[in-house]
Nucleic acid binder design. Structure first.
Lengths: 246, 246
DNA sequence: CGTTTGCTTGATGTACATCAATCCCCGTGG
DNA sequence: CCACGGGGATTGATGTACATCAAGCAAACG
């Protein structure tokens, strides 16, 4: 289970707004750039959703696209389901990361988003975003940057690499994203199942388990029930370097 | 491995062009939506580049991001090179498809774009796009749609599927994209090497060759030196359906 | 508690890679 | 015109990274 996020003590407060005033998760929005004055309109249209609990859906495949979302606290996964019923975990989302940009083009969500542990979301209605964009021209470019980043990430993760490289890169990537957000970085909570991790990395649960064991044996990580501790980031980063952004 | 990156050298020649009037490739731009009045500004900032020949670069890794591009005629590939020197073919680009959106976020191209056969490009300087966007607010949203589409495609292709499924989906996808652009759809020119196709699909040249042979034997395609003819689209689409958009 | 559910660990299987010829174009020079 | 060379394509034999199958185990949960 994920605990509630703690606000950074020395972090500057963001400007109060109808929706975001008093939100306990301001620091992650700041880390994601939502506190910039040119994007202030986004704060005013944000709606809170949740908390959702493990396995509950934010949206389902084939639901119409009406908004983009961001995790506020907790963690979520995006899952695609194909015609044969096979599932594919496309991403794990940390607080502040935009969800649903892939649905803009066809105005249709072809994926599901599922909460992993108690999770809260922010909802940004698309019509409101378009409205805000007319007075704040940086807004669409902010989305564009988020989309650009997502494309870069997907391109890297699509590559043909060994299980060990992909898994190391996965851990380091998650660590780095948490560091940017001001969350505990050496400790990674893993509210998703081994099956989810494996599916995401095109591996089986057994292989994930074996990799975790191997990394633990080599002193790169230490495991507990809720997640893992990164104890040798340098080695881990070297293993995954081909798959990581610089 | 792939030698193309080291084969040819030479800076692309650029021809400034105030508008698209008289461009012989207007139909593909039309198919891609560039003829809409709300995007007319894009036509006025387009510059022609090329023609480039097989193996010549549009841009190289680590070059600064100053523009997005579109293929005008011919075909191109995007190639990522990691720290270990391994290459990964990320995409093959048909006329009208935007190239370089992944570089917007970090203002840096971490990939190369290489011509496959005699290929012409359109260049859209980023500062000019931003300028045009101030008077034509649909412009950033057009890019956003292109990015959204790219994300959807990458998510699909990242999945864990059999070689046969991926290859069938690749052929059908290319066929469908050509159909949208008004190009010959049953006939697919393949100016890239088997190695390029295989690399893109996480397969070896040998496997690509065997798949082509198998598909030919089953009467799904017929091969010639320059490309292939799709003779049983239905079966091909069924094979690849899990990986295709609907 | 017992049952369930997910995790771990070992033995065996397989899709595809790798290795290795051979073939087939196509360009080049005589 | 043909001889020759070389890079890509095909085809077959063998290897391997990871999946699949199978069994035990430990935490979670009613």
């Amino acid at each position: 289970m994920l605990q509630t996020l703690h606000r950074q003590d020395g972090a500057p407060r963001m400007t109060p707004s109808p929706s975001c005033a008093g939100c306990g998760h301001a620091s992650v929005c700041q880390a994601s750039g939502y506190d910039r004055a040119e994007l202030s309109g986004l704060r005013h249209i944000a709606e809170r959703i949740g908390p959702l609990r493990t396995g509950e859906y934010l949206y389902r495949p084939l639901s119409p696209f009406r908004a983009v979302y961001a995790v506020q606290s907790g963690m979520a996964k995006t899952v695609a389901v194909d015609v044969a019923g096979r599932e594919q975990v496309l991403a794990f989302h940390l607080p502040g990361e935009l969800i649903g940009l892939d649905a803009i083009d066809r105005e249709l969500h072809d994926n599901a988003v599922v909460a992993l542990g108690k999770t809260q979301f922010c909802r940004f209605p698309y019509h409101a975003i378009r409205q805000v964009a007319t007075s704040q021209p940086d807004v669409p470019w902010h989305l564009m940057h988020a989309a650009s980043q997502r494309i870069t990430r997907l391109q890297l993760s699509g590559g043909n690499y060994l299980a060990e490289e992909r898994f190391a890169a996965f851990l380091v990537d998650m660590r780095d994203r948490r560091a940017v957000l001001g969350l505990s970085a050496d400790y990674l909570p893993l509210p998703m199942s081994r099956a989810d991790i494996g599916n995401h990395l095109r591996l089986t649960t057994e292989t994930v388990s074996r990799l975790l064991g191997r990394f633990r044996q080599r002193g790169m990580i230490s495991l507990d029930r809720q997640g893992l501790h990164v104890t040798d980031l340098k080695t881990l980063r070297e293993l995954g370097q081909s798959l990581l952004m610089h």
